[in-house]
């Protein structure tokens, strides 16, 4: 499936800032399920910094913007040819071994309830167990936009029984790690279908490392494994680490950053997106 992305993230500062530094994981991963046709990221007034492929196989590109500025725009335009690999991350090269993805972070720390939820899904066979975990999380946290916020932890989302894709992914990761699966947070895009709201286009899911298969994606929010509608960008221990854009503005008052999103539709098939 050929997917087209046009994704704009706008940063607005109440007062001019002296400069902006950003670190992008905004380039589709290289694996058998994705082929890059074209891809371009631009930052208004930005200068490209260093770029490298990190140990997790993600392409990282640094940017700096010299101030004073009050607004910058990060625009991603590109086309990707995707294939359905039933969620399996085949042909992806990475240095970091699965054992390094077992560490808890504040957002993915397991409490009693998450542990119990993980145990309730237990199967002898690892692949079935992984699927059962994803379904258990999907069942325990109802998709409810606005019920949670950026810093909601997995435990909080489960207690509330409501959340968005970030919360689903965090909860699945927390559950998976408690029962011994290496697990990680994946950020990317999802083509939600013609005529649907573009709300979910900037998406997130989880990957679990399953013996015999390697990394497999699970998207509890949509009760499926990533297929040809998904574009994978990068991975981290949690949402913060896997963020497609990490940035810091110099000389900004801590609360002066606001975010606007513009979504445009492109042909032949658009992945419409909204920023994080």
């Amino acid at each position: 499936m050929r997917l087209t992305v046009d994704h704009v993230t706008r940063y607005h500062y109440d007062a001019p800032v002296r400069g902006v530094v950003q670190s992008h994981r905004l380039t589709p991963s290289r694996f058998d399920g994705q082929k890059l046709i074209s891809w371009e990221v631009t930052v208004t007034g930005g200068e490209k910094g260093g770029a490298f492929r990190d140990g997790a196989g993600d392409w990282v590109q640094a940017w700096t913007v010299k101030g004073p500025v009050t607004e910058i725009e990060v625009r991603v335009k590109g086309e990707v040819e995707t294939a359905d690999l039933a969620g399996i991350l085949r042909g992806h090269r990475e240095t970091v071994p699965p054992e390094a993805w077992c560490r808890e972070t504040p957002a993915t720390e397991a409490d009693e309830a998450l542990r119990a939820l993980a145990e309730s899904a237990r199967h002898d066979e690892p692949l079935s167990f992984a699927h059962a975990l994803a379904f258990a999380v999907a069942g325990a946290i109802e998709y409810t936009p606005g019920a949670t916020h950026e810093h909601t932890t997995a435990a909080e989302a489960l207690a509330a029984g409501a959340g968005v894709c970030q919360d689903h992914a965090h909860a699945l990761i927390a559950c998976a790690r408690t029962v011994g699966f290496p697990a990680r947070y994946v950020s990317g895009y999802l083509f939600a279908g013609e005529g649907e709201t573009p709300h979910e286009a900037a998406h997130a899911w989880a990957e679990l490392w399953v013996p015999g298969f390697g990394w497999i994606g699970f998207d509890p929010a949509n009760r499926c494994c990533p297929d040809e509608r998904y574009i994978r960008l990068g991975a981290g221990l949690d949402a913060r680490e896997a963020a497609p854009i990490r940035g810091i503005a110099r000389g900004a008052a801590t609360d002066s950053e606001s975010l606007e999103v513009a979504v445009s539709v492109a042909q032949p098939v658009a992945v419409q997106s909204q920023a994080q």
Partner: peptide, 11 residues
């Protein structure tokens, strides 16, 4: 801020 990206890219 941004030091690690410079480091990893050999700057």
């Amino acid at each position: 801020p941004g030091l690690m990206d410079v480091y990893r890219s050999g700057g």
